[in-house]
Design a protein around this nucleic acid. Structure first.
Lengths: 189, 189
DNA sequence: CGACCCACTTGACAAATATCAATAAATCAG
DNA sequence: CTGATTTATTGATATTTGTCAAGTGGGTCG
């Protein structure tokens, strides 16, 4: 079973038959480092599954870029505002490396709903899961120090810290690169 | 049209016929100040519509309470983790005042799905909307100063600041009551 | 009325974080 | 490989925020 199949089954909890149908609607797509999967402000009806590589999700606020998240192999990438409501995307999603995606387009999305009647239910669960995760992240900002936020992120993503520029993690954590650097020095000693 | 009807129609975008069906599944419930609608750790299959009064959503972290949100008249209140996944609730939801709710229970929820086939789709949109809102809140923590976060919250909720203890707003904004007090003094001069 | 309980404010000080500037290390292009 | 560019670290300093302690004022209730 491919990572894609595993993830679809884990995240959406579907049968093998449904799996085959779902899979048939996702088309391969390749991005070179620096290419955009989604651009903020442009409407995108694309839901991607990240097979290989990493994407950075960010917006430009004033004169700086704010990185919301780094998506890694095996995860889904989508701008919900754009995908669900067909409004301009909130986020930029740019390839940090060479990237291979499997992409579901809105048009095929409707066929998917026809082929698998309880797809909206599946999707509801997916989005609800996303909600509880991001809600937890808000709580982290309300209850943890910069130190603690870093250590929590690092504990679950050790392998990423030598692949991704640290400044992006600093932004994700809501601190300057200098502060992150100092926290890391303290934590490693 | 009641606030409830308006909100259901706004949020879920349903017809009048469907509206009647939906409405029939929501049962009135009253809370006294201090009562809990949901308790963290207990599974609750309840989705509430807040007709009157205010609820505070918080968790206890270490030795302090972290307030995530104050819900006001006309909004829906639910612990998604509990409602969607039937797991223990993440949040406490406690009445800040005398409260009147309309409550949908999980059992009736299934009947609702039977009566309105595209209910999961409707619900998906609702949750997706919640997601985009909370995602924006994460961004605020990554990109704004304490000052700016306060001013933004205050701009949209002026009327609340003389009804709700300020310490709860301080917690929602991720700062101490002392800091909020000083920011307010600065902002008002 | 008066004692008490809250929530809020204020001040003094400590700790955390940002800013600015310089340097070192890593990465990339030719 | 080498120079150029980006990224990371470090130091000095300023700003922001937290902590602790004291004081104020409104509300409640015997």
């Amino acid at each position: 079973m491919t990572t894609f199949e595993q993830q679809i089954k884990n995240v959406f909890g579907v049968s093998n038959t449904e799996m085959t149908v779902i899979q048939s609607f996702f088309k391969p797509k390749v991005l070179q480092k620096g290419d955009y999967f989604i651009k903020s402000g442009q409407t995108s009806g694309n839901l991607g599954f990240l097979q290989k590589g990493m994407l950075r999700e960010f917006v430009v606020v004033g004169d700086k870029e704010i990185t919301k998240w780094i998506s890694t192999e095996g995860s889904f990438v989508v701008d919900l505002k754009s995908f669900v409501f067909k409004e301009p995307a909130r986020w930029n999603m740019q390839a940090l490396t060479y990237v291979e995606l499997l992409v579901l387009q809105t048009s095929d999305y409707h066929k998917l709903t026809d082929a698998i009647p309880h797809w909206p239910e599946i999707e509801k669960m997916f989005i609800a899961k996303c909600f509880t995760i991001i809600e937890e992240r808000v709580l982290q900002h309300l209850s943890l120090t910069a130190d603690e936020r870093y250590n929590q992120l690092f504990a679950y993503n050790k392998h990423l810290f030598n692949q991704v520029p640290l400044q992006y993690f600093a932004s994700m954590l809501g601190m300057t690169p200098e502060t992150l650097s100092r926290i890391r020095r303290k934590s490693s000693s």
